[in-house]
Protein backbone atom coordinates (compact mmCIF):
# COMPACT_ATOMS: atom_id res chain seq x y z
CA UNK A 1 0.00 0.00 0.00
CA UNK A 2 1.02 3.64 -0.42
CA UNK A 3 2.56 5.68 2.38
CA UNK A 4 -0.68 7.69 2.74
CA UNK A 5 -2.59 4.55 3.70
CA UNK A 6 0.20 3.40 5.98
CA UNK A 7 0.42 6.72 7.83
CA UNK A 8 -3.34 7.03 8.28
CA UNK A 9 -3.51 3.43 9.48
CA UNK A 10 -0.71 4.04 11.97
CA UNK A 11 -2.59 7.03 13.36
CA UNK A 12 -6.05 5.47 13.46
CA UNK A 13 -5.56 1.82 14.34
CA UNK A 14 -4.81 2.40 18.03
CA UNK A 15 -7.92 4.53 18.45
CA UNK A 16 -10.08 1.85 16.80
CA UNK A 17 -8.57 -0.81 19.04
CA UNK A 18 -9.15 1.21 22.22
CA UNK A 19 -12.70 1.98 21.10
CA UNK A 20 -13.40 -1.73 20.65
CA UNK A 21 -12.09 -2.49 24.14
CA UNK A 22 -14.24 0.34 25.52
CA UNK A 23 -17.35 -1.06 23.81
CA UNK A 24 -16.69 -4.50 25.28
CA UNK A 25 -15.89 -3.35 28.82
CA UNK A 26 -18.87 -0.97 28.97
CA UNK A 27 -21.20 -3.54 27.39
CA UNK A 28 -23.37 -3.72 30.49
CA UNK A 29 -23.68 0.08 30.77
CA UNK A 30 -23.89 1.54 27.29
CA UNK A 31 -25.12 0.21 23.94
CA UNK A 32 -22.81 -2.39 22.49
CA UNK A 33 -21.26 -5.44 24.03
CA UNK A 34 -19.16 -8.44 23.16
CA UNK A 35 -20.39 -8.95 19.61
CA UNK A 36 -20.10 -5.32 18.49
CA UNK A 37 -16.80 -4.67 20.26
CA UNK A 38 -15.28 -7.87 18.95
CA UNK A 39 -16.17 -6.89 15.40
CA UNK A 40 -14.48 -3.49 15.92
CA UNK A 41 -11.28 -5.09 17.27
CA UNK A 42 -11.23 -7.53 14.35
CA UNK A 43 -11.60 -4.50 12.07
CA UNK A 44 -8.48 -2.93 13.60
CA UNK A 45 -6.45 -6.11 12.99
CA UNK A 46 -7.75 -6.46 9.43
CA UNK A 47 -6.85 -2.82 8.73
CA UNK A 48 -3.28 -3.49 9.89
CA UNK A 49 -2.88 -6.55 7.66
CA UNK A 50 -4.44 -4.77 4.68
CA UNK A 51 -2.24 -1.68 5.00
CA UNK A 52 1.12 -3.24 5.85
CA UNK A 53 0.75 -6.69 4.33
CA UNK A 54 2.76 -9.55 5.61
CA UNK A 55 4.58 -12.55 4.28
CA UNK A 56 2.98 -15.96 4.24
CA UNK A 57 4.83 -17.41 7.23
CA UNK A 58 3.80 -14.56 9.51
CA UNK A 59 0.20 -14.76 8.28
CA UNK A 60 0.08 -18.48 8.99
CA UNK A 61 1.47 -17.98 12.49
CA UNK A 62 -1.15 -15.28 13.07
CA UNK A 63 -3.90 -17.55 11.79
CA UNK A 64 -2.86 -20.36 14.12
CA UNK A 65 -2.70 -17.92 17.05
CA UNK A 66 -6.10 -16.37 16.43
CA UNK A 67 -7.66 -19.78 15.89
CA UNK A 68 -6.35 -21.01 19.25
CA UNK A 69 -7.48 -17.74 20.86
CA UNK A 70 -10.99 -18.20 19.51
CA UNK A 71 -11.26 -21.75 20.83
CA UNK A 72 -9.94 -20.70 24.26
CA UNK A 73 -12.41 -17.79 24.45
CA UNK A 74 -15.47 -19.91 23.70
CA UNK A 75 -14.17 -22.53 26.15
CA UNK A 76 -13.87 -19.84 28.83
CA UNK A 77 -17.41 -18.68 28.07
CA UNK A 78 -18.73 -22.21 28.47
CA UNK A 79 -16.68 -22.83 31.63
CA UNK A 80 -18.06 -19.69 33.28
CA UNK A 81 -21.59 -20.93 32.60
CA UNK A 82 -20.73 -24.39 33.98
CA UNK A 83 -19.18 -22.84 37.11
CA UNK A 84 -22.50 -21.05 37.63
CA UNK A 85 -24.21 -24.44 37.44
CA UNK A 86 -22.07 -25.82 40.26
CA UNK A 87 -21.84 -22.73 42.51
CA UNK A 88 -25.26 -21.19 42.27
CA UNK A 89 -28.70 -22.66 42.60
CA UNK A 90 -28.08 -25.42 40.07
CA UNK A 91 -28.93 -23.05 37.20
CA UNK A 92 -26.93 -22.87 34.01
CA UNK A 93 -25.91 -19.23 33.33
CA UNK A 94 -26.70 -18.22 36.89
CA UNK A 95 -25.31 -14.80 37.88
CA UNK A 96 -23.24 -15.82 40.91
CA UNK A 97 -21.03 -12.76 41.53
CA UNK A 98 -22.31 -9.81 43.60
CA UNK A 99 -24.34 -7.43 41.47
CA UNK A 100 -23.03 -4.13 42.86
CA UNK A 101 -24.63 -0.76 42.16
CA UNK A 102 -26.42 -0.42 38.83
CA UNK A 103 -24.43 1.90 36.58
CA UNK A 104 -20.97 1.26 38.05
CA UNK A 105 -18.23 -0.09 35.81
CA UNK A 106 -17.73 -3.11 38.07
CA UNK A 107 -21.29 -4.29 38.50
CA UNK A 108 -23.77 -6.78 37.05
CA UNK A 109 -21.88 -9.84 38.34
CA UNK A 110 -20.59 -12.15 35.64
CA UNK A 111 -22.05 -10.26 32.66
CA UNK A 112 -18.85 -8.20 32.00
CA UNK A 113 -16.80 -11.43 32.08
CA UNK A 114 -19.19 -13.05 29.56
CA UNK A 115 -18.87 -9.89 27.44
CA UNK A 116 -15.06 -10.09 27.46
CA UNK A 117 -15.08 -13.78 26.50
CA UNK A 118 -17.56 -13.23 23.68
CA UNK A 119 -15.62 -10.16 22.52
CA UNK A 120 -12.37 -12.12 22.24
CA UNK A 121 -14.20 -14.95 20.51
CA UNK A 122 -15.85 -12.71 17.89
CA UNK A 123 -12.67 -10.73 17.21
CA UNK A 124 -10.57 -13.88 16.80
CA UNK A 125 -13.25 -15.58 14.68
CA UNK A 126 -13.59 -12.71 12.21
CA UNK A 127 -9.81 -12.25 12.00
CA UNK A 128 -9.35 -15.99 11.43
CA UNK A 129 -11.87 -15.97 8.58
CA UNK A 130 -10.10 -12.99 7.00
CA UNK A 131 -6.68 -14.62 7.33
CA UNK A 132 -7.97 -17.92 5.94
CA UNK A 133 -9.29 -16.13 2.85
CA UNK A 134 -6.02 -14.19 2.37
CA UNK A 135 -3.89 -17.33 2.76
CA UNK A 136 -6.14 -19.21 0.35
CA UNK A 137 -5.72 -16.49 -2.27
CA UNK A 138 -1.96 -16.37 -1.80
CA UNK A 139 -1.56 -20.14 -1.97
CA UNK A 140 -3.69 -20.63 -5.06
CA UNK A 141 -1.63 -18.13 -7.09
Amino acid sequence: MTSIVKTVTRLVVGVIFIYGIYIILHGHLTPGGGFAGGAIIAGAFILLVLAYGSDMLKLKAKEAGSSVMESLAILAFLLMAVVAFFLGTKVFFHNYLPKGIIGDLISAGVIPLYNIAVGIEVAAALFTIFLALVIFKEESK
Binding site: L29, G33, N95, I102, G103, S107, A108, G109, I111, Y114
Partner: peptide, 12 residues
Amino acid sequence: TGSANLVTGILF
Protein backbone atom coordinates in the same frame (compact mmCIF):
# COMPACT_ATOMS: atom_id res chain seq x y z
CA THR B 1 -29.39 -8.69 36.42
CA GLY B 2 -27.69 -5.59 37.82
CA SER B 3 -26.91 -4.46 34.29
CA ALA B 4 -27.78 -0.91 33.28
CA ASN B 5 -27.92 -1.91 29.60
CA LEU B 6 -31.09 -3.95 29.39
CA VAL B 7 -30.15 -5.60 26.08
CA THR B 8 -26.92 -7.02 27.50
CA GLY B 9 -28.73 -8.05 30.66
CA ILE B 10 -31.27 -10.08 28.67
CA LEU B 11 -28.64 -11.43 26.27
CA PHE B 12 -26.30 -12.80 28.91
